[in-house]
Nucleic acid binder design. Sequence first.
DNA 1: CTGAAAGCGCTAACAA
DNA 2: TTGTTAGCGCTTTCAG
Lengths: 332, 332
Amino acid sequence: MKKKISIENVAKLAGVSISTVSRVINKSLSVGKANRIKVEKAIKELGFKPDFLAQHLASGRSIPAVGLVIPRYEGAFYSFYALQLIRGIGIACDNNKLDLFLHITGSLNLGNMSSLSGVIFADIIGNRKHLEAIFAMNIPCVVINNIIEDLDVDCIAVDNQAAAKEAVEYLINLGHKKIAHVTGDLNTQAARMRLEGYKDALNKNNLSINSEYIVETDYSRQEARGAAEKLLNMEDRPTALFVASDSMALEIMGVISKEGLEVPKDISIVGFDDNPEGLYAPVSLTTVKQPLIEIGQMAVDRLKVLVEKRPDKKEKISLPCEIVVRDSCRHM
Amino acid sequence: MKKKISIENVAKLAGVSISTVSRVINKSLSVGKANRIKVEKAIKELGFKPDFLAQHLASGRSIPAVGLVIPRYEGAFYSFYALQLIRGIGIACDNNKLDLFLHITGSLNLGNMSSLSGVIFADIIGNRKHLEAIFAMNIPCVVINNIIEDLDVDCIAVDNQAAAKEAVEYLINLGHKKIAHVTGDLNTQAARMRLEGYKDALNKNNLSINSEYIVETDYSRQEARGAAEKLLNMEDRPTALFVASDSMALEIMGVISKEGLEVPKDISIVGFDDNPEGLYAPVSLTTVKQPLIEIGQMAVDRLKVLVEKRPDKKEKISLPCEIVVRDSCRHM
DNA sequence: CTGAAAGCGCTAACAA
DNA sequence: TTGTTAGCGCTTTCAG
């Protein structure tokens, strides 16, 4: 078991003081050439690496990494959504030579993300407290996929409401009148907004809102099945479905065909996410594409600005989505 | 700009010494009930969160996170391979309530992964030095996708050589004799082993190795195109291709059809990775599936063992792959 | 059960 | 240009 070599060992070997060693580590100009060389030699010999935690502690500098806090939910790592986000953020971190500190927050323990350059919160649901803590410490942070009005923090999200409205109007324009909505987890702002958008579209087009046609889920494929069964067995079956996520939509398509019905002949369906899986379903899925990767990149870029300039003006950015028309909807 | 609240503030507010505060933070039993309550109240009031860097420094404890070092290569975050690995490791970290510290190592700067519980190295190519540094510090680490013989470190990889051999023999059994190989980046052990396996298969079946039939690339789609063009324009064109990655194979399929040829009629092709994209190509791609997610999980599990038990016996694990037969190869 | 004091490895004034 | 000396925020003996 080797012990850690510290700056002191180096100093001793080089025959200088620890401050001199510290100086060469930090590339301070004011070190004599002779000493610098001696120190560098000693560092190499010992294989010394400064402890970045100690460096941080002593200097107050933040460590060059951004934190990404994702709520722990069923299959965070399986979800297309989360993976795309990680990807976008990862790319941006890489470009900026930042490390990425991924923290999947379970219930209570508000992790330890202080002392990072900044942190990104993906979706605020279980982790609102965590956000508040970081925010209170005045650590740069940006929230994605959630517009938080009551906290002066930067937010980048997609305009879920407008996107949902657009999707449902697409269905309406196709002639559908009986349109159901399978929601996501309504603890989630995105799901709530999607639901609002659904209602907006109906209202605007003078279609009444049938609460039977709104089925809540937690985004799981499991509950999607349940929702599908309920909806398909209604006496007044909807002719179209707007589903809050592609993975649920796909699951539902399975149920539909198992029930002996056909998409889009008997029932039209539009999803949300533009999950590539949807492309290769028996009938390719019409869906709403969110600019997930871009969001990730914007978040990191914004964080950089926050770290470097500490602007006091916060931004709440809402990005548009795009509806991707494929084969799962038909004209009535 | 709020200043950080420290243990001292808490102590003052609670009217006790900082050691007492420290004790309640660390759940030491020996704190009087009255004091404990006072301290907890103060902590809540101040919203105090212990600085984990300082905790680490003072206690010598490692921080509950595993590092993942990935060499910086073109599109690390776009590659299916890397993403699967991250996913597997992410899942395992989540299960173990560990954070994941992702470090994409560029050239020189050997990051700062000491003081983590352990670190996983994905592919050793530019970062051999980095590995040695961590290893020398006696920090638990495991290398994946690379069996390193000359360092007593845990390794988990896929048996690329056997897998490649199997893939090529599959082609041979189909009656192919003129089989070319588009390699990956030969700086990579995986690519080298794949090449060896290719040769093994040929040798074992008394087919001569035609060096013209071996085209090196760096795994990029770009170079894959070049390789395809070269191979397709040979007077003695191969009838089958074994390509070191699915994404290259897919690219090559594109070139093939652009040249007016057909897969598998004119040319058979097998890839490597089991990238889902291959499933949905015009002709679905026969490929080799690596247990990437499992590798990630095994790596984390192994790390846990290393951290907890510090066994001195290292393991070099080589996992089998599985060939996934689809439609891109034909019988001669 | 509790407090005082000595560090953990490093940086940052301040002197020299 | 260098060395000395305080700390950074916390844990951990060691007394009491």
